[in-house]
Amino acid sequence: MALFSDSLISPEVAKQIKEGYTIRPLHGGDYEKGFLDTLGSLTSVGPVSKQQFTERFNYIKARNDTYFTIVVEDLKSGKIIGAGSIIVERKFVGHIEDIVTAESARGLNLGLDCAEKNVPFYNKCGFVQKEVEMAWYIPENETIKAKL
């Protein structure tokens, strides 16, 4: 089950994905395909059970006009190697967030948000640094439900 319709991903964007990979909406079964492991390459995810993942997926899917998480899947391994989210706020802006590439897939030109050491690479590609990113992480010994 997909988070949103595949038709919302531009064919032009899909064509830019290298052969052997596909870009698509997050699926309910992506827990088993390593989605959270890939997300863990960006930030501390903490312990999330399959049930918690499914509950959160269903919550997001029920709000399918707000949250759009895409993934890049390695078709050979069946693993999620990249992800990103678009959050559409009901004002005049949206946010692209949580762009991540699994460490095993770095160098395939799939990422945006980066570590400080990668800034020169993105500058070379025409990106400019904007503002400062901040994060708050749920301590690993706490469950997600405790904070929601």
Rank of each mutant, 00 (worst) to 15 (best):
Y21M: 11
Y21K: 09
Y21P: 03
T22L: 09
T22Y: 02
T22W: 04
I23C: 10
I23P: 15
I23T: 13
I23F: 04
I23A: 08
I23G: 11
R24C: 08
R24K: 15
R24F: 12
P25Y: 07
P25E: 12
P25C: 03
P25M: 08
P25F: 04
P25D: 04
L26F: 03
L26V: 07
H27L: 11
H27W: 01
H27M: 04
G28M: 06
G28E: 12
G29S: 15
D30E: 09
D30Y: 02
D30Q: 02
Y31D: 08
E32Y: 13
E32W: 09
K33I: 02
K33C: 09
K33D: 13
G34D: 12
G34K: 12
G34A: 15
F35Y: 15
F35K: 03
F35Q: 03
F35S: 00
F35R: 03
L36C: 04
L36D: 04
L36E: 07
L36I: 05
D37E: 15
D37S: 11
D37G: 02
D37V: 12
D37I: 09
D37M: 02
D37L: 11
T38F: 04
T38L: 04
L39Y: 06
G40D: 02
G40I: 05
S41V: 01
S41A: 02
L42M: 13
L42F: 08
L42G: 07
T43W: 03
T43F: 01
T43Y: 00
T43V: 10
T43A: 09
T43G: 07
S44W: 06
S44F: 05
S44Y: 01
V45N: 13
V45T: 11
V45P: 11
V45Y: 13
V45I: 15
G46S: 03
P47R: 05
P47N: 11
P47K: 14
P47I: 06
V48F: 05
V48N: 04
V48M: 10
V48R: 05
S49A: 07
Q51W: 01
Q51T: 09
Q51C: 03
Q52H: 10
Q52E: 15
F53W: 14
T54D: 15
T54G: 06
T54I: 12
E55W: 00
E55Y: 08
E55Q: 13
E55M: 10
E55G: 08
E55L: 09
R56T: 10
F57S: 06
F57H: 03
F57A: 07
F57C: 07
F57V: 06
N58E: 13
N58C: 00
N58K: 12
Y59V: 01
Y59F: 08
I60W: 05
I60F: 00
K61R: 13
K61A: 12
K61N: 02
A62C: 13
A62E: 15
A62F: 09
A62R: 14
R63A: 10
R63Y: 01
R63G: 08
R63V: 00
N64A: 11
N64M: 02
N64Q: 06
N64G: 07
N64P: 02
N64S: 10
N64V: 01
N64C: 00
D65E: 14
D65T: 11
D65S: 13
D65I: 09
T66G: 05
Y67F: 09
Y67S: 01
Y67T: 00
Y67H: 07
F68M: 03
F68I: 00
F68K: 04
F68Y: 15
F68R: 00
T69V: 10
T69K: 04
